[in-house]
Amino acid sequence: MSEITVELTVNRRARTATVPARTTLADLLRDSFGLTGTHLGCEQGVCGACTVLLDELPVRACLTLAASCQGSEVVTIEGLDGPDAERIRAAFSREGALQCGFCTPGMVLSCYELARRRQVLTRDEACMAMSGNICRCTGYNGIIRAVRSAIAEGIESES
């Protein structure tokens, strides 16, 4: 079997794993590091449940090979912390932005990158920015309210 060894930083911790070359980042996180908060909903790059931050940018962990992440920095839902992350979590809960919770990690990570930009979004812009994450439960109203509210609170925190 063709194996690779990959060294990377996951949630600020240096990690090394030797895995089959065909292993995706999602399976590396889940199976090698036990970070099962990264969910697989389609493995086709559409649903967004597996979204993680790779070198600070959201990517599809199902469409990224573990091997390609050599030397990279990965943040998953388990390692997401700080004031922005806490504001997002509070807003999601307050606004009814989750039900079953399966899409939630990907939603939160996508929202996190938006919140970090410190840019006010209209409802339409927020919908567009979140259009790469599918939620089958909530109908998105609560998610979009939470996203906009977390962005606004982030901006307010710096003014």
Binding site: A21, R22, T24, E43, Q44, L63, T64, L65, A67
Partner: peptide
């Protein structure tokens, strides 16, 4: 050749293609 993989990975995941070697040029 593997670039960002955003078109290739879905095809690999669904086993619609099965190359023997991937050459990742993103490094």
């Amino acid at each position: 050749v593997l670039g960002g993989g955003q078109s290739l990975l879905p095809i690999l995941n669904m086993r619609l293609a099965a190359p023997a070697h991937l050459i990742d040029i993103t490094g």
